[in-house]
Nucleic acid binder design. Structure first.
Lengths: 197, 197
DNA sequence: GCAGATTTCCACCACGTGGTGGAACTTGCT
DNA sequence: AGCAAGTTCCACCACGTGGTGGAAATCTGC
């Protein structure tokens, strides 16, 4: 068990979830600690007691977001099929919880500014996903050398990530117009050569 | 000439430009009228005199952004080559003025929230670009019926727009890692079948 | 140079901001 | 039951927020 009493942990959790929704709606700068605390049914100084300051809360929200839907057990061997399955599940989950996407999209866009408190964290996140994708593309190309792509694995991976993010932003702006999980699935299958959808 | 005195018009212009930079850095909600006015060397009530309220200022900024780099003379006939050339010039300009991209990216992400003041405007912008792209894709497919794409022209256009936006967001987060105009150029050439780069 | 429209700034308003300090209460453990 | 650690709220702080009203300065066409 982590530190603190059970009540405290529950309160923290409630605050994080409400903060995620609020940041998604109004961004980091546009959200007040008081509004988050109000939604969580708590005084805003309680929030500060738990997180110290606004930036720390934001980082806690991102960390929580990333652990959402994570499988409890990792496989003994990491295969392209397993990774592709992970991406597919992520895309599915995203459709069911639009607030989480909105959160990350807004934060990523804001983090284009050099002094955004979550910039480093989001850069790392992105870099990790891109690295994994590039690795999978290499696997695919090594297995089938008939494939041609004028883009190197890293660039191709970056484009895929960018397209994924862009589709989510597009979908938020024009709800229901696109089938994002389907489009993402097609794209990944094309790039990784993994069957099934 | 539009309404007002010359001094007023100049002040308005200065405010709009400074507002664009500020919105790009901190988003709409995170930017204060006072900070914009300070940068423009003007009292914040002067700003309000010219624009009435914060939302009206935002819309003015977007409108100004869209008219930036617009050609003064339209051609008598609109051809795919002409449109493609327009897209290419836009991508070039974007590279030179990262603030403008950052502005639109942040606003688009924020506008995923249903009550964002610029939502309708940005939806229309997006719809227009997508429509033009879909038209060009149709042209291309009609000219060369050997082409195959499992996506319809509208979906393909939306994906292209999403990728374009996503690449700009990616680039803001990882400066210098990608050659965005080049990637966008390749993508457009592939979709529209227009030669030259 | 004059009149009227326009522009600009100052003072002010009610309220919201992130953050602090401390007192009262609750929890978990022995 | 007792007691320390942890939790919660209240009161407060200095400051920033979008917006208003009015008086002074400036600009434009005559």
């Amino acid at each position: 068990m982590p530190d603190g009493y059970a009540t405290g942990r529950a309160t923290k959790q409630s605050i994080v979830e409400n903060a995620a929704a609020a940041f998604a709606q109004k961004g980091f700068y546009g959200t007040s600690l008081r509004s988050i605390a109000r939604e969580a049914g708590v005084d805003h100084s309680t929030l500060l007691h738990h997180f110290g300051n606004k930036t720390a809360l934001l980082l806690a929200v991102i960390e929580w977001h990333d652990t959402q839907g994570m499988p409890a057990d990792l496989p003994s061997e990491i295969t392209p099929e397993y990774v592709a399955e992970g991406f597919r599940r992520t895309a599915e989950r995203n459709r069911e919880t639009p607030g989480l996407i909105q959160l990350l999209t807004v934060l990523m866009a804001e983090a284009g500014a050099e002094d955004h408190p979550a910039r480093a964290t989001l850069q790392q996140r992105h870099a990790m996903v891109t690295t994994v994708m590039a690795w999978m593309i290499r696997q695919r190309r090594a297995a089938d050398d008939a494939l041609v792509d004028h883009l190197g694995p890293e660039d191709r991976a970056a484009v895929i990530v960018a397209t994924w993010d862009g589709l989510q932003m597009y979908d938020a702006l024009h709800p229901g117009q696109l089938d994002v999980p389907d489009l993402v699935g097609r794209m990944l299958r094309e790039a990784f050569g993994v069957s099934e959808g």
